[in-house]
């Protein structure tokens, strides 16, 4: 009997050995670049910020699926964020009524979205094969929960799943193995840019690209929202390459999210980014 829990998407595992958190300081730009908590307007809005990373008005957070879905569309990355050559994959977006769940058999399956998740969206991208390099498969996921606590449970479950299933089957012809993760809460190990950071490393093997190749999943939580980016390696892609490719899109999503839910944000929607490279809305957090 296979049991499905309200398990979460994979986090990226970071081997805690020595120096493995290579590239994970990437997001550090966000801490200096994001708008400082605007304490000047004390008393204008009610409610303490549910996150230390940015001053959020809790009343401004999504409470319905529709609001959450709109927020996600503002936040989730465009292909260009992953750098030159990145294009959409087909299918590009996930079915918004479903999300992946890891069973006791360590196989991922699509299940109906649970009630405590307001909305989620996954986009798939690719840097097609060229020269000696195979195709790099990328994804971005944004999930809006009802409360920060529930988002925190999502991250906890990522870690559980990694322990319970250090090898996981993504699809009938794709597996990830040797999963490792080192989580850091806000303030730990230089994490000043998210309430929680998970970096999961592993090995990816697929029928199309063979393997094992490097696999990386990075996930952060800010308030009730979790953001994730992932990369499934192929020939010619090193782990350092994967970190490099995921840095900008992840940072961009965090910046857009913070801007969107900041207490003093003037509009509920942030403008659509249309330029390649890191998003211009970032306040100086270029790498």
């Amino acid at each position: 009997m296979v049991v499905f829990r309200e398990a979460v998407r994979l986090g990226c595992a970071v081997a805690v050995c020595g120096s493995v958190l290579v590239g994970c300081t990437s997001g550090g730009g966000g801490s200096s670049g994001s708008s400082p908590a605007k304490k000047a307007a004390a008393g204008t809005t009610a409610g303490p910020s549910p996150t230390a990373v940015v001053d959020i008005d809790p009343a401004g957070l999504p409470t319905t699926s529709g609001q959450a879905a709109a927020l996600i569309r503002d936040v989730i990355a465009e292909p260009a964020a992953f750098g030159p050559g990145a294009v959409r994959r087909t299918p590009y977006e996930s079915d918004p009524r479903r999300w992946p769940v890891l069973g006791d058999d360590c196989v991922w399956q699509q299940r109906a979205l649970p009630k405590n998740v307001l909305a989620t969206l996954t986009r798939s991208y690719e840097i097609p094969a060229s020269g000696s390099k195979g195709p790099l498969r990328l994804s971005a996921v944004v999930t809006v929960h009802r409360t920060p606590e529930q988002a925190d449970w999502e991250n906890a479950e990522v870690l559980e799943e990694m322990m319970r299933c250090p090898a996981q089957r993504l699809r009938s012809d794709e597996v990830i193995t040797s999963l490792n993760n080192a989580p850091n809460s806000f303030g730990e190990s230089g994490n000043g840019y998210a309430d929680d950071v998970l970096t999961e490393l592993g090995a990816y093997t697929g029928a199309e690209v063979g393997g094992p190749h490097p696999y990386l999943w990075e996930q952060t939580r800010i308030g009730p929202v979790t953001l994730a980016v992932s990369a499934k390696g192929a020939e010619g892609w090193s782990r350092a390459d994967l970190f490099d490719r995921l840095r900008e899109p992840h940072s961009g999503m965090r910046t857009r999210l913070k801007s969107a839910i900041d207490r003093d944000a003037p509009e509920p929607e942030a403008p659509e980014p249309d330029a390649p490279g890191p998003d211009g809305s970032a306040k100086g957090d270029r790498r």
């Binding site: 081997a15 050995c17 020595g18 120096s19 490792n180 592993g202 090193s238 782990r239 350092a240």
Partner: peptide, 12 residues
């Protein structure tokens, strides 16, 4: 799982 560790340390 030595290949993870070796790879990760080499990545830098």
């Amino acid at each position: 799982l030595p290949d993870i560790e070796a790879t990760a340390l080499d990545a830098r």
